[in-house]
Design a protein around this nucleic acid. Structure first.
Length: 207
DNA sequence: AGCCAGGCTACCG
DNA sequence: CGGTAGCATGGC
């Protein structure tokens, strides 16, 4: 049995705490007390949608533009002009689709009130898939759910944790369960682990 | 000058 | 079910 906790400790030693999810474009390494309010929670969700197949650098620009227009606010976003939203988020790409996704999510967020969303509710929204749903649950709602992305598969391969042949026929849910069943159910650990895997993957490319 | 980025939907066989 | 084109910008 692979000890995923040991691998985590090595990653943490190599890269240090990552401070995910950034709030107001600032990371907060080692501080797992975010989000501190509903506004920050909403910002994380918007970032999770904007970063779909897009570098975080471009998402930062989009978030800055939205912030300047006071649109990082669910109630203002739902009544905002579509073209204004598209102009703000243009740097993050796919702006036609993402503008629609943001409005749909904002509507949902308001109807939620203070309740924690259920995964299936998120998945039923147009524009929210598995990774985005899980990112929202883990980083905006502190739910102990492990997020899987392309970096996670590379990590498992590169560390010889799972062989390529086996990994190729594992679904998203399979990989997610593999992590969750081999780690203590701790949202702080899951938040840091996923961020470290991404950092690990980024470093691989520069070498 | 392509290829890639903290994916998802729609549609195909 | 699994596989893939299309979506769009900025960095390298």
């Amino acid at each position: 049995m692979i000890n995923l906790k040991i691998l985590y400790q090595n990653l943490l030693k190599d890269h240090g705490p990552q401070g995910w999810w950034p709030i107001n474009n600032k990371y907060h390494p080692g501080d797992y007390s975010y989000p501190k309010n509903d506004s920050q929670r909403f910002e994380i969700c918007i970032g999770a949608i904007l970063t779909q197949n897009t570098s975080w650098k471009n998402v930062e620009r989009a978030l800055d533009n939205l912030r300047k227009k006071k649109l990082l606010d669910a109630r203002k976003l739902i009544i905002a002009d579509d073209q204004l939203i598209k102009n703000c988020i243009k740097p993050a790409g796919y702006f036609n689709q993402k503008a629609k996704k943001l409005k749909i999510f904002a509507e949902f967020f308001i109807k939620l009130k203070k309740r924690i969303p259920i995964r299936d509710e998120l998945l039923s929204l147009w524009g929210i898939g598995k990774e985005t749903a899980d990112s929202i649950l883990l980083y905006a709602y502190d739910q102990p759910i492990f997020v899987i992305d392309t970096y996670t598969r590379k990590f498992l391969l590169n560390q010889n944790i799972i062989k390529e042949k086996e990994l190729n026929h594992m679904t998203y849910e399979d990989i997610k369960l593999f992590f969750q069943e081999n780690l203590p159910k701790d949202y702080k650990l899951f938040q840091e682990y996923h961020a470290l895997i991404v950092q690990y993957g980024k470093n691989l490319q520069n070498n």
